[in-house]
């Protein structure tokens, strides 16, 4: 590195202050060396694929034969594909049901944990542990716990005299079952919210109490505004994840030789995309689907940022 720097000094054109420019270029060169893995990876595994997916979306491509250009044909077919419409509908319903439920339940759990004092560590572990389960195992667990005839959930419902539905086979109940299962893995959100809650200054509650605010008003006027940054973060991350949810539903309802029952109700967009790409080898069509997904995620995220911006409060607004 020192050798390289020396040559750059002699190479610098006359008339420019050599020392400063060489120090700068030396720093730039060192920085580029350090970030070069990412630069290469970005070019090869992100930038090029994004562009190439765009190109493929305009072609018919089955991996074996060369891509043939078909213009907007894939996008036209997409609009008319009832399975795309179904997959989009399923995905939206799942996102709309699961994201707010996860947010509310994890907030509730974090508030409880925050009141638990010293034992909060033990309970936090209990809530976080399910997050460690491989999603494939969660898919299997879903089939077991929500089994219509003898699953644990329906047995528990039976104690209260409720005749539980066929969660895994009745199209109406498949998505509620998936949403309930997704609540099992909200541990990370709970940990984030708990950390945020612990950063809320006690003085604010004291002041609110002096002003006569009860528990509800303290929650809505102190707690939620003060942790709105964390809530917003979870909202965005969970929404993006919900639109891409794949593994649990794919494990439980798809795969080779599932003729046992209809799985239309669990056909998420990511699952249909995967099938088109790697099971039917419709790479062009799947690429078009990928671009649509990207556009949807982008628009939904931008709307969320716009709408929630007014409500999010960052203390000090650092950096």
């Amino acid at each position: 590195m020192a050798v390289a720097a020396d040559t750059s000094v002699t190479d610098s054109p006359p008339g420019r202050p050599p020392r400063r420019s060489s120090a700068r270029s030396r720093e730039t060169r060192a920085a580029l060396l350090f970030i070069s893995p990412w630069l290469i990876g970005f070019a090869v595994f992100t930038a090029y694929p994004v562009i190439y997916t765009g190109y493929l979306s305009l072609t018919d491509y089955d991996v074996i034969n060369d891509p043939s250009f078909v213009g907007m044909e894939n996008f036209r077919a997409l609009l008319e594909d009832p399975k795309v419409a179904l997959a989009l509908q399923n995905t939206f319903i799942f996102a709309v049901l699961s994201v707010p439920t996860q947010l509310i339940v994890s907030f509730f759990l974090a508030v409880l944990l925050n009141r638990a004092g010293r034992a909060s560590g033990f309970f936090r572990t209990a809530f976080f542990l399910p997050k460690m389960t491989p999603p494939v195992a969660i898919g299997i667990l879903l089939l077991l716990l929500f089994n219509g005839q003898n699953g644990l959930i329906n047995e528990a419902l039976g104690w209260f005299g409720i005749d539980g539905p066929d969660w895994t086979t009745d199209p109406v109940w498949v998505k509620p079952g998936l949403v309930m299962m997704s609540l099992w893995t909200i541990g990370a959100s709970v940990v984030i919210l708990l950390a945020a809650l612990r950063n809320v200054p006690q003085e604010l509650y004291d002041a609110a109490r002096v002003d006569g605010a009860g528990w509800w008003r303290q929650t809505t006027h102190v707690t939620i505004p003060m942790i709105s940054g964390a809530l917003f973060f979870i909202l965005i991350v969970d929404t993006i994840a919900a639109f891409q949810s794949f593994t649990e539903a794919y494990t439980a309802f798809f795969g080779s030789g599932n003729t046992t029952y209809s799985n239309d109700a669990a056909l998420f967009y990511a699952i249909y995309l995967f099938q088109q790409a790697f099971e039917f080898l419709h790479m062009g069509y799947a690429s078009a689907m990928a671009w649509i997904l990207f556009a949807i995620v982008l628009v939904v995220t931008l709307i969320q940022v716009r709408v929630t911006k007014r409500f999010v409060y960052y203390e000090g607004e650092q950096r």
Partner: peptide, 17 residues
């Protein structure tokens, strides 16, 4: 920004690579 990018958008070309 790359964190926001759905995996599906790069999945197919990366497979082809």
């Amino acid at each position: 920004a790359t964190m926001m990018l759905p995996q599906a958008v790069t999945m197919i070309p990366v497979f082809l690579i």
